[in-house]
Design a protein around this nucleic acid. Structure first.
Length: 948
RNA sequence: GCGUCCUUAGCUCAGUUGGUUAGAGCGCUACCUUGACAUGGUAGAGGUCACUGGUUCGAAUCCAGUAGGACGCACCA
């Protein structure tokens, strides 16, 4: 074995071997266990969130694989509609100064395919570096042929089931990206804006109760005035009651608007009159529906004013009874310029009453960052009501469980007021909607054009053109768990591996993805008995990985840490280039540079994949974000090094030794470490069952470092270094060193796959285990028969005595190597037995040259004293003891015991406690009291024995 | 506004269904080149468990409220 641990070399070598050997593919038999990976963007790269989630999935898969289950970790990537199209558009603009329209649809999508071919391997390469044991043989892409087929199938079936419809509706329109987006893709931002109070003159000589000839309406968007269809007041508002049914004249346009009554109007807000613009505001749209108002659209798709308004009824049919003329000087003016112009014009007409500061929420596109415009357009929608009802039931009845549970509330809340889902996007990259139009605008849905023609009896002579729009990326993602397994074909993979067992994902996509997967899967996937199938039984929701001060990691903050840089290390210069190199704003770049230099003055040292993964596991407590801490990573890198060196020790002491066929005898220490190991396995099994990877990681860490390295390895030294040791005992020690290490490697493997494999390959053969890879080795079953309670107690005794001696050494400043004589006063029969069995261990590890037992009360020379339970641990050292100081120490010790005795006496004297607490608890407290009382007596005697 | 979560050692976090003298890692202090490992070893210091009240024999843990923080949803033009 190499004297130093070199993660990079080990990790790349073993991954290649595993992949070549085909270990990631599902086994031929066993109980199926499957996980579908949340497909990362095909052109994306690995970030900390991926590293976190992939590590968790990998641990689950490796654990289940070792347990003999037939594991499938389905891998694949997502075409990520808008995101990918934007990247390529930006590239095209930067490199050739062209837009996608310069190229045309086909040439542009070819460019995207080229870009995918070029950069699509980045993330899969990074996943390999992370050790993910996904089944690469069946890797999928949401736009591969089979999956595209599944998408068309799903669309057509939903349409046939009446769950997809097309219509002219008010949707969130991104004027920059020129596409509709769903409600979820809109982010509301707080801004300080204005409220313009405008006067709308009353028509026909009507006056208000106050004798005014106008109504005042307040608006945050004066430019939408051009599309107003009514003015609304509250039905019980006395001020305006008489005006209901009368008319106002819309300024600038001279359109007659009815005054309508609707309880939605807040009488307290502004004047209590609201302008209603059904084609440019969602609330007004609803009111328009209630009052059959015309939808008057005045904006085009880039957000500029139309030369002439378009008017529809609520069903989307053109409506001819409204004058659609608009003032000529606004035509083609951008919405925000038009706002200024209109305010100015109203001011000139003395129709602007006042302008007020006003805080409001502005909707922005999550991709473009531009202000979203509610716009009346023809779109495809998924009717969600029925789907959502079933999806809610599946979680309510426990078919699907969220871990942690609290996310179910969030899921329910969203599901219960879900709106129909706009699934069409005016993009070029994605699944084109399988609908064809004739010259008159009639549409025909089918799996392909031929089917659409056949279904509707259209001859080849009828000209058809496919819908230009593509589907929302999440439409295809929603089919992921079964689309990847062969659906709509009834494949063996689908039957075997669906439903999947668990979905591991971030809470940020519960609505985007998880909820929609549940809706679609319940609709499409049926069990043989006809009942609906869930996509997964459990949703394990991970927190976000934040930076060390709790900030979200983002490029603009310059606090992103690439997981690969933590694995392989990166120089400061390279890190600076990465963070600031492509920054457009030099000021920001400077700030980030400064921050980076401060945080990583020497770049980032390599830590290896195993250390990174182990850090992620140890921080993975549920329901909480993680503040990343480089120090933790260093700690677990050290842990890897510790394992490496422990293995070196074991191999050094076993590899070269010939087995001389002696029947091994197992020492107390051997039985003890076996017992501890079994307890550790039990803890890990429980932790896996609860998705508590932090607890599992802690159990592995503590067992290896505290039990195996700190105690067991030390306990083997006296035996292994003893020339005259009993060969049977030697054999037992060597066998245990190896066997426990070998098993430990297996239980650590799901968390740290590489270092465990590398060491296991050397250790396993020495234990007589033959296997190709630790990956395929069986998961150890916790064997309670091996939990030797007596050994646990005996070693605990040994540890207590050793700790007492060390404590004396430290307190008295005695060199660690200085041999000491130990006196044990007042030993019980158990103490005597334990001493006899472990005399050698005690002598060597505590570095003693003699141990003597004396009866209680025996007078001995001045000695430093400690208590190990009831046993007095004494180290005679007349010349080092200052009786006065020692008395002080003992009396403070006695004070502590007195306090404890007082506390316990009080508690036990409380009838409430003794009467109501469980007997076991009372007994425990009594025991404590007795121990404390004995300790006090012993201390008193020690005190009295000291000279004044 | 509605809902969820968080507040424990200097820092990052555990604390398994109420029963300890509240733990870990890092950091800190002192000592140690002991033949696996100085990416190490040994011994320590360090906490009124945000605050207030309640339930209970017993509260870091359960309940209510207060303060601070995070997030989700919906918002009155």
């Amino acid at each position: 074995m190499d004297t130093t641990y070199k993660p990079a070399e080990i990790e790349t070598r073993w991954y290649a071997e595993w992949e070549k050997a085909g270990y990631f593919a599902p086994a031929d038999n066993g109980t199926p266990y499957s996980i579908a990976i949340p497909p990362p963007n095909v052109t994306g790269s690995l970030h900390m969130g991926h590293a976190f989630q992939h590590s968790i999935m990998d641990a689950l898969i490796r654990y289940q694989r070792m347990r003999g289950n037939r594991t499938l970790w389905q891998v694949g990537t997502d075409h990520a509609g808008i995101a990918t199209q934007m990247v390529v558009e930006r590239k095209l603009a930067a490199e050739e100064g062209k837009t996608r329209h310069d190229l045309g649809r086909d040439a542009f999508t070819d460019r995207i395919w080229d870009w995918k071919a070029e950069s699509g391997g980045t993330i899969t390469g990074q996943m390999r570096r992370l050790g993910t044991s996904v089944d690469w043989d069946t890797e999928r892409f949401t736009m591969d042929e089979g999956f595209s087929n599944a998408v068309r199938e799903a669309f057509v079936r939903l349409y046939e089931d009446g769950l997809i419809y097309r219509g002219k509706r008010l949707v969130n329109w991104d004027p920059a990206l020129q596409t509709a987006i769903s409600d979820l893709e809109v982010e509301n931002h707080d801004v300080n804006g204005h409220l313009w109070h405008l006067r709308y003159p009353l028509a026909d000589g009507v006056k208000t109760a106050d004798g005014l000839d106008y109504l005042t309406v307040a608006t945050t968007r004066p430019e939408t005035l051009l599309g107003d269809a009514a003015v609304a007041v509250h039905p019980e508002d006395e001020r305006y009651r008489k005006l209901i049914g009368k008319f106002v004249t819309l300024p600038l346009v001279s359109r007659r608007l009815p005054v309508i009554a609707d309880p939605y109007v807040d009488r307290e807000f502004g004047s209590g009159c609201v302008k209603i613009t059904p084609a440019h505001d969602f609330n007004d749209y609803d009111m328009g529906r209630r009052h059959n108002l015309p939808l008057i659209n005045v904006l085009d798709t880039v957000g500029a004013i139309l030369p002439e308004a378009e008017c529809y009824d609520i069903g989307g049919k053109p409506r001819a009874d409204i004058d659609t003329a608009l003032p000529a000087d606004y035509a083609g003016v951008d919405r925000f310029d038009a706002r200024k112009k209109i305010v100015l014009a109203l001011e000139e007409l003395d129709l602007l009453e006042r302008i007020e500061d006003h805080k409001l929420k502005v909707p922005k596109g999550d991709r473009s960052g531009k202000i979203i415009e509610p716009l009346l357009t023809d779109q495809w929608f998924v009717a969600t009501e029925k789907l959502a009802t079933d999806a809610i039931a599946a979680v309510e009845n426990g078919d699907i469980e969220f871990v942690p549970k609290q996310y179910e509330n969030m899921y329910f809340a969203w599901m219960r007021n879900i709106q129909d889902w706009c699934v069409s996007r005016q993009l070029w990259w994605g699944h084109r909607i399988p609908a064809w139009y004739d010259k008159d605008g009639n549409f025909y849905v089918g799996r392909d054009e031929a089917e659409a023609r056949a279904a509707h009896g259209l001859s080849d002579a009828v000209e058809l053109r496919q819908d230009d729009d593509v589907l929302d990326t999440w439409f295809s993602s929603a089919l992921w768990t079964f689309g990847t397994l062969g659906w709509p074909e009834d494949t063996a993979r689908l039957r075997d591996f669906h439903p999947t067992d668990v979905l591991v994902t971030g809470f940020d996509i519960i609505f985007f993805w998880v909820a929609r997967m549940i809706m679609f899967t319940l609709h499409f996937m049926k069990n043989p008995d006809g009942s609906a199938q869930v996509p997964f039984k459990t949703v394990y929701v991970t927190g976000l990985i934040r930076d060390e001060s709790g900030q979200k990691m983002s490029k603009s903050k310059g606090n992103v840490i690439d997981p690969l840089d933590m694995i392989d290390g990166i120089s400061l210069d390279a890190l600076l280039e990465k963070r600031c190199g492509s920054m457009m704003q030099p000021q920001l770049a400077e700030k980030i540079g400064k921050r980076t230099r401060k945080a990583f003055p020497e770049g980032i040292a390599p830590h290896g994949t195993d250390a990174l993964r182990f850090t992620l596991f140890s921080l993975a407590s549920t329901g909480r974000d993680i503040n990343w801490d480089m120090k933790r990573l260093e700690g677990y890198r050290n842990f890897c090094n510790k394992i490496w060196n422990a293995a070196r020790y074991v191999l050094m002491n076993t590899e070269a030794q010939q087995s001389n066929n002696v029947a091994p005898v197992y020492s107390l220490a051997d039985r003890w470490i076996q017992a501890r190991l079994q307890q550790c396995i039990g803890t890990i099994d429980r932790a896996f069952g609860q998705y508590r990877f932090d607890r599992a990681a802690t159990a592995v860490y503590e067992f290896i470092w505290n039990d195996y390295c700190d105690w067991y390895v030390e306990l083997t030294k006296p035996v292994l270094l003893d020339e005259s040791a009993d060969p049977a005992l030697l054999a037992g020690t060597r066998a245990t060193l190896l066997a426990v290490l070998e098993t430990t490697l297996r239980i650590a493997h799901p968390f740290m796959p590489f270092i465990t494999e590398d060491i296991w390959q050397r250790v396993a053969p020495l234990t007589g285990i033959n296997g190709d890879s630790i990956m395929l080795a069986p998961w150890p079953a916790a064997d309670t028969a091996l939990v030797d309670e007596a050994a646990l107690d005996d070693i605990a005794w040994l540890q207590a005595v050793i700790l007492a001696v060390r404590s004396i050494r430290a307190a008295k400043n005695i060199a660690p190597g200085e041999p000491l004589k130990l006196i044990l006063r007042n030993p019980s029969a158990d103490d005597e037995r334990r001493l006899a069995a472990q005399r050698l261990s005690l002598l060597k590890i505590a570095r003693l040259n003699d141990i003597e037992c004396v009866a209680a009360g025996t007078e001995i020379p001045l000695a430093a004293a400690e208590l190990a339970g009831d046993l007095e641990v004494l180290v005679p050292m007349a010349d080092l003891i200052d009786p006065a100081a020692e008395k002080l120490r003992i009396s403070s010790e006695m004070a502590k015991q007195n306090k404890e005795i007082q506390r316990l006496t009080g508690k036990l004297g409380n009838a409430g406690f003794t009467g109501k607490a469980p007997a076991a608890v009372v007994e425990k407290e009594k025991l404590k009291l007795a121990t404390a009382e004995r300790a006090l007596q012993t201390l008193q005697k020690q005190y009295d024995a000291l000279p004044d």
